[in-house]
Design a protein around this nucleic acid. Structure first.
Length: 416
DNA sequence: TCTGGGGTCCTAGGACCC
DNA sequence: TCTGGGGTCCTAGGACCC
């Protein structure tokens, strides 16, 4: 029995969600109908385009553009700051609707879902019909539009939802591949980014069809396993199941931040690291997990990336402990050049129910644990700024940085 | 093009073991 | 100590996704 998979993608997600919210608040202007973008704060160096309206797109504005550039392309551009808490809520409301049509829903990112509709036609109707029903319900009940792609696997469903936008339903079944997907430029294929596109062009491969028909040995020679992966995608092959939502099987937790100014002292860098640790560790503990691998990354003012990581002998969820390691890693890493961005990531996660106590200083460990939990509770009850370390007073550095809100945030992954 | 923040996976070299 | 091959683990960096 053939599978039926839907891929649902919110049109200009952040912009649409902010638009709906503003209308609900009584604003008369629908920002979807003018040239508008969602973007960060330029003064604190977070100024890039996160989402754009169709009109803004017509001016040539792309996601990821610096706001400065976007203004140059369209001087009367409206820029609205992101509201991540709102986006998490809007996303959840949409997922709830999907569950009316299938129990097998995988949230792939904040604005994308896969839905396994195999063997469900008897209950809700033919795939194409029900795709329209879902799309209409979202528009009517939640106020924004989506694209739906339908196929027999996730890869093709995802490719289908990328076709004409907005507010459209497309199919891309295997017998439609040659006509609908093969003529497209090769970089429109999932997992073909800038570097891969460049390599493929050097091999004379320009369309998805070229890639599908290319010599497999040659692809392997030049691109190793990635070459085989994208060729099987070009041929429409993908057997991955609609699995649990990615955030239910999170592999690591990381936060990073671009500092408002280039940091050039240990004091500032340590404060930023501590504020990142606070956020990460609270996320870690509220997921009832512990970690065993800690990595620190630096982006210097000249955009050079570097990172160091260390595996611990035992697992931990202590803010002080993780901060201590992070400081050491940073010391190894930093050669003194001005720092633009700092990041920490913890991984090799496991359940916290059998935390192995280090033979040394168990007393300290237990004390730390109590303290961490007490602070977590206060923050959950009274907000993240209800309690913070004195060193952040008048420092110009936020006591908790990174993160997008109180709630769990769906993670994104390149793996179907 | 002065370019955010959250993720995952792969590769390659070196250490270490047998 | 002039020397093979295979396996695993660790680390740093780079590719990709939204």
């Amino acid at each position: 029995m053939d599978r039926i998979i839907f891929h649902i993608d919110v049109n200009s997600a952040y912009l649409s969600w902010s638009a709906v919210h503003r209308l609900q608040q009584g604003d008369s202007l629908d920002i979807r109908t003018v040239s508008a973008v969602i973007g960060g704060d330029e003064a604190s160096r977070h100024g890039i385009v996160l989402a754009k309206s169709t009109l803004a797109k017509k001016y040539g504005i792309k996601t990821g553009n610096p706001l400065r550039e976007a203004y140059n392309l369209c001087p009367n551009l409206i820029v609205i700051p992101p509201d991540y808490n709102l986006y998490v809520k809007a996303s959840q409301a949409m997922v709830n609707i999907f569950h009316d049509y299938s129990p097998r829903v995988q949230q792939f990112s904040i604005d994308e879902c896969f839905l396994d509709y195999s063997n469900m036609s008897y209950h809700h109707g033919a795939p194409l019909e029900v795709a329209h029903t879902i799309s209409n319900r979202i528009e009517k009940e939640l106020g924004f539009t989506v694209n739906v792609g339908i196929s027999s696997n996730k890869l093709l469903a995802k490719m289908a939802s990328e076709f004409e936008k907005p507010n459209k339903v497309h199919t891309l079944f295997p017998d439609e591949l040659e006509e609908k997907m093969w003529p497209l430029p090769v970089d429109e294929l999932f997992m073909v980014g800038r570097q891969t596109k460049r390599q493929l062009h050097q091999l004379g491969i320009h369309t998805i069809g070229d890639l599908a028909q290319a010599n497999t040995d040659m692809l392997y020679t030049y691109m190793k396993s990635h070459g085989l992966l994208i060729q099987s995608f070009a041929r429409g092959l993908d057997h991955s199941p609609v699995r649990k939502s990615n955030f239910e099987v999170v592999k690591g937790i990381g936060n990073s931040t671009t500092i408002r100014f280039d940091a050039n002292t240990y004091d500032i860098a340590y404060k930023v690291l501590l504020s990142l640790c606070e956020t990460i560790c609270m996320r870690l503990r509220s997921s009832e997990l512990v970690c065993q691998l800690i990595s620190v990354s630096i982006v210097t003012a000249d955009f050079k990336h570097a990172s160091h990581q260390r595996k611990l002998y035992s697992t931990t969820d202590s803010t002080s402990h993780i901060f201590y390691i992070a400081k050491e890693l940073f010391d190894e890493l930093w050669a003194g050049s001005p720092i633009r961005k700092l990041g920490i990531r913890i991984s090799e996660l496991s359940d916290n129910d059998f935390t192995q106590l280090c033979v040394l200083d168990t007393d300290d460990y237990i004390k730390e644990q109590r303290k961490d939990h007490a602070v977590d509770q206060i923050r959950r009850k009274h907000g993240t700024t209800a309690i913070y370390r004195a060193c952040f007073l008048h420092s110009g550095i936020k006591p908790m940085s990174g993160g997008v809100g109180e709630e769990h945030y769906p993670v994104m992954t390149s793996l179907l």
